[in-house]
Design a protein around this nucleic acid. Sequence first.
DNA 1: CCTAGGATCAAATAACGCTAGGCGT
DNA 2: TTATTTGATCCTAGG
Length: 806
Amino acid sequence: MRPEDVPGLPEGVPEQLQSEGIEELYPPQAEAVEAGVTEGESVLASIPTASGKTFVAELAMLSSVQRGGKALYIVPLRALASEKKAEFERWEAFGIDVGVSTGNYDSDGEWLASRDIIVATSEKVDSLIRNNAPWVSDLTCVVSDEVHLVNDAHRGPTLEVTLGKLRKINPGLQVVALSATVGNADEVAEWLDATLVESDWRPIDLKMGVHYGNAISFDDGTQREVPVGKGDRKTAALVADTLEEDGSSLVFVNSRRNAEAAAKRLKDVTARALTEGEKSELAELAQEIRDVSDTETSDTLANCVAKGAAFHHAGLAAEHRSLVEDAFRDRLVKAVSATPTLAAGVNTPSRRVIVRDWRRYDGEFGGMKPLDVLEVHQMMGRAGRPGLDPYGEAVLLAKDSETRDELFERYIWADAEPVRSKLAAEPALRTHLLATVASGFAHTREGVLDFLGQTLYATQTDEPGRLERVTDAVVQYLDVNGFVDVEDGQITATPVGHTVSRLYLDPMSAAEILDGLEWAADNRDENLRKLDGVASATSEPQQTGEFQRASEMVSNDEGTYESETTYPTALGLFHLVSRTPDMYQLYLKSGDRETFTEECYEREPELLGKVPSEYEDVRFEEWLSALKTARLLEDWAGEVDEDRITERYGVGPGDIRGKVETAQWLLGAAERLAGELDLSSVVAVREAKKRVEYGVRDELLDLAGVRGVGRKRARRLFEAGIETRSDLREADKSVVLAALRGRRKTAENVLEAAGRRDPSMDDVDEADADVPAATFERASGRQSHGGDGGDDGDDPQEQASLGDFG
DNA sequence: CCTAGGATCAAATAACGCTAGGCGT
DNA sequence: TTATTTGATCCTAGG
């Protein structure tokens, strides 16, 4: 089938496709067209990755818009949203507007009403429905990318419920679902009332095999000799082998540490294959990586990249990740070792994929658990770049012949597991049931069950009555906690219940937060007394005028308290939100248990709630890991350097950012809840939220609110005597310029953002801006001495690293 | 005969990912 | 539960 044979497309689109080099549709694509995707028919395309799924979706959306409709593309990851948007934007020439909506962007989504194609994550879509986004009822086509994710215990139910709601709102809605090959695609298709298009076809051949001894055995019966010298590592040998044919390798491992260790070893292999030109480009890239963040992780990554290897995991800052991804795609970086982040994320194909670790530690499982077939298939599917490689190779590693045979059985010959709905789990139902009631999809127990009866879960369950039981338990939970009222069989959301639903909080998080804030109100006086007692007993450390000192103070384990005690304290609030189920737990590492037990008793008056007994093992452990998270946030909001934090808590720069973002969100929600219930803590909550947002101590809140001023610049301005936004408008320009390290352009931008009438720096003499030469040198030691407070790196980055969320 | 460096072994250590609100100067 | 790292001990080659 050729593009011009596809019915229903807007005029000019087939020509555009041809000019992109698309002469002929791939067989599965043609099959989807024959099934009517461009004529409003629902289709489930269950085909391998990189075989043109997105294209099927594009055809469907274009034709739907052509008929006067509006399309929604649901992505599984935020990172994919912008990638898809960029892809769809080439249709703007045909009068089609594209909009993206993910967590960070707009909230009400009103402006999306005018867009023809909207890209959003499933959570965002869910949230938009909860907030009654008006345009949702205008949708005529919805695309669900990676629908097999309904199988995911954590995020699957959201997708499942969201698709259900969309179909309920728009009865005739066309559903185009894209899925990896799974065991029960027919079942999923039936649930969606869609025609199934299933195929193993790939645009480029994929050879799967296992390396054992001195050779890889492939599934097509061929072998390839890859000798492993003694002392050598298998992975290194395989990477070197690919390199000989000028191909790049992607290595999947099961932990961050392993990813870093593997990259360190691989760099010696890749270094040998670099040209002079590549070396200098890589050196540049390494510098860019160093500039992203001043941490050990960043440094190690830069060292590897300089030699042509890299690692990739969620502990990296987002900028790190995309730098690595881009460089790998451009074939500058020859080998990447990665945790599964890379298997599901943005497209990073590679000539050879090596799945080194196929088991991963799982506490609940009680040992090393083999990965799902689907997951391994996703990894292997990254092999082979269409149009560039003759074929792709995916290799598993075995150290004995028994393992080799097992790997063939388990992963190469095996079909992926069937997709199974995880909706009937209590945590999932808790939030979705409340939302269903709050946004008016159901008002009675029967109504709720009726709605749930149309989900995939209902078509799959072999355990009748389970859904009813869990539903009843959850309704009762919501009732007891005051989120719904149950009367005469009618279930209605209370005002708080409505707010919780709209805030997108897990009701259990909301309950925890409300309990904590109410507890604080009841125990305020007693705890304030304790706090003041402690503060005077520890005796305020001498002058706190000097910044270095002040920052030491907070990070010090001795514990220091602000004298003008606000209550609840920031730490108390950080701990409160850290112990909700919406905040991911930080691991307690060896030694942490003691450290934080001690800390817990020391800081007890600040914590909002009763400390669980040490004998309640699980609860106490959770309490402590929440405290660890809270201390991390407190350090961040106390201007402790990024590298100190990563070192102290054993996390990567990306983790800090993740925690900070979540805390910001939850504190925002807490602020709303406190306001709604008229609790006195609103002000304290707002301040704590602002402090994590900017990563500053309270005296800098005003300054850090100015655009272009992050935690570091704010501190330097403050040191220079400019303490507020209005000081910025009045101050001597040369002082501002000096505080900003003599960067004229930055200074002008800052002044303008602060609302100064004459931001120009043209009339300021360089000599006036007495820039200490030493500050341009990178501080080598961790503790920088000297009075200039020169604790950070160079100008553009100091803002870019983490201070710059806005 | 001593030392540096490598090899070997036992003990210690740590083990994936990530979505979400809404204010505004 | 397991793979990797770390640290201690032992061995060997070379001075």
